[in-house]
Simulated scan of single mutants.
Amino acid sequence: MITRRNLLIGSVGAVGAFVMPAYAHDKKQFKIDPKFEPQSVRYFSYPPGTIVVDTKNHFLYLVQSFGRARRYGIGVGKAGLSLKGEAVIKRKAEWPSWRPTANMIRRNPGKYRKYANGVPGGPNNPLGSRALYLYRNGRDTMYRIHGTTEPSSIGRSVSNGCVRMINAHVEDLYERVPLGTRVVVL
């Protein structure tokens, strides 16, 4: 017999399972290095509101005030596959759909050709729970700051060029930045 108490406990459990970060469900129980957890750090290089992506050190900084930034750990592109320079966030999406670029399919057809028509948004989508689309001179660069289904890639250079974040971390960033945010990729 379903009681009000059992229904309430089941509902809370279902909601809790839905909002848990993707890495909490990883079969290997992935544990992120604490230095890649979001944290406030000293940072002086750019004006407040700017996102700075430090590909060499695997950090993304959201400059919050002069001298302070919120730092996140990231995974970045393999050598030669990263965006460099400046861009602007012109589009944001929750649970975005994904389609590999023509270059990805060309580089690795065995892995990507089957996804040529795209993958709908959801927990198994490579872009994860959120995506910030980077534009330059009004044109889509095809690079994104997005979540990931591979949390072990944080702190590594393994992607096809986009900036990967733990889903819970990209959700936090997504809420903090408006369209038009300047992004500097070092």
Rank of each mutant, 00 (worst) to 15 (best):
Y43N: 03
G73F: 03
P126L: 10
R164N: 13
Y61K: 04
R99M: 11
A79G: 10
E94S: 11
S11G: 06
E86I: 00
R71H: 06
G161K: 05
I166T: 00
S82F: 00
Q39L: 03
P126D: 07
G121L: 05
P47H: 03
G122N: 04
V185A: 05
A69Y: 00
D140F: 15
V177Y: 09
E175K: 14
T3K: 05
M20C: 10
I51W: 05
K90G: 13
V53W: 05
A168E: 15
I74N: 13
I51A: 04
L8F: 11
R113D: 07
P96A: 14
G147M: 12
I51N: 05
L132P: 00
K31W: 09
E37Y: 03
W98D: 02
D140Q: 03
T3V: 01
Y72S: 04
V158I: 13
L132D: 01
P120R: 14
K28W: 00
G75W: 03
V41L: 11
L132C: 06
R4F: 14
Y143H: 05
R42D: 14
S40G: 00
E150Y: 08
F18A: 15
G13L: 15
G75H: 05
A131N: 09
L186H: 09
A87Q: 04
S97V: 01
K78M: 09
P38T: 06
P100L: 11
A69E: 02
S157Q: 12
L60A: 11
S157Y: 00
P96S: 14
A24D: 09
V184E: 08
